[in-house]
């Protein structure tokens, strides 16, 4: 099968107020298969939102995509012109933003906000447009489509707002949806409910998805593949079963360890020390060597000297760590 979205050697930097460039993404490459859910894991500041934004070129003004290509349906999105991009955004590739309470227009009825997305891409008549809007709401809010579509965002709960964002994203029948921490601000019950909505849509519409999160537990039984970002670099990438069950990169392992496991462990581990990753995130990067080196518990001498390259452990599992270089 060929990938529907192919990211090749993507480099993105932010221009700091001093004038220098600080890298946010370095040499990120992966392919998204049709109908596949790719989970992207990483801590705050690891470049997850930057990745989501650069795929459709929606980045802050001081961001620079310095190298790479994003192939989608025969075009390189990084070189497409403004009008081509506008045609693709929302119609072929949709974005779902991090904060559902901020991503909706505060004084426009949510039905209208979905209608506007449809109107932006199809020159339908008024009747057909309203009919399509109704169909989208029927899909996402099977219980009470009409009441919700006549509501303003502030009258909806967090979960309902998130569903509206989903409605906007799937309105035009895209083939790829990029969701940036879509459930981070929701409580667990609502979180599960939204994951269920995504799962249904994938089955019904055959969507491919990039699902960004900082919670590895969310990807269990949901994602097909997992990509772990650390300091803007791909630390580990592989099928969900492999990465979640037997992580290889020291960062991935440490990340999974830091989650409390009271449910699964025998005996009482309450109030014991969680094996947290020491040190303060990816912000203070070493100038040379492996980016995880300052916090790594398995570091070796060579780790300080140069950067590890990606190693193929199997056809679908790659890790960037010297431990696996032979």
């Amino acid at each position: 099968m060929i990938a529907i979205l192919e990211i090749q050697d993507l480099h993105v930097s932010y221009r700091s107020s001093g004038g220098g460039l600080c890298p946010a993404l370095t040499s990120v490459s992966f392919g998204l298969m049709p109908g596949e859910i790719m989970g992207v894991l990483g801590e705050s500041g690891s470049g997850k939102s930057t990745l989501a934004g650069s795929l459709v070129r929606l980045l802050p003004a001081n961001a620079r995509i310095t190298r790479g290509a994003v192939q989608f349906e025969g075009t390189d999105l990084l070189r497409a012109n403004a009008d081509e991009l506008r045609q693709i955004r929302g119609r072929r590739i949709s974005l779902i933003f991090q904060e559902p309470s901020l991503a909706l227009h505060p004084t426009m009825r949510v039905g209208e906000q979905v209608r506007q997305v449809l109107a932006a891409h199809d020159s339908l008549g008024k009747g057909a447009l309203n009919e399509q809007t109704r169909q989208v709401f029927d899909q996402v809010f099977p219980e009470e489509p009409d009441r919700i579509s006549h509501s303003y965002p502030h009258q909806l709960s967090g979960g309902q707002r998130q569903r509206v964002l989903i409605a906007q994203a799937i309105a035009c029948g895209p083939s790829v949806v990029i969701a940036d921490e879509p459930t981070a601000s929701l409580d667990p019950t609502t979180q599960m409910e939204i994951l269920g909505v995504f799962r249904n849509l994938r089955e019904k519409l055959g969507l491919a998805m990039i699902f960004i999160t900082h919670n590895p537990a969310l990807l269990c039984g949901f994602a097909d593949r997992v990509l772990v970002l650390y300091a803007g670099k791909v630390a580990e990438c592989g099928s969900a079963e492999t990465v979640l069950a037997s992580p290889r990169h020291p960062y991935t392992k440490a990340l999974f360890h830091s989650i409390p496991t009271v449910f699964d462990r025998p005996g009482n581990t309450r109030k014991t020390k969680l094996p947290a990753i020491l040190g303060d995130s990816a912000r203070s990067l070493p100038i040379r060597g492996c980016p995880f080196e300052p916090r790594c518990t398995e570091k070796m001498d060579i780790c300080k000297e140069r950067e590890p390259a990606a190693v193929n452990l199997s056809a679908s599992h790659t890790v960037s760590c010297f431990k696996y270089e032979s």
Partner: peptide, 24 residues
């Protein structure tokens, strides 16, 4: 953020300015 989101949905510039930004 909601204007960025609207941009991400491919809303045309004019609509964005006069239908989204101005009322907000």
């Amino acid at each position: 953020p909601f204007l960025l989101a609207a941009l991400g949905h491919g809303i045309p510039k004019r609509t964005l300015l006069y239908r989204y930004a101005l009322p907000a």
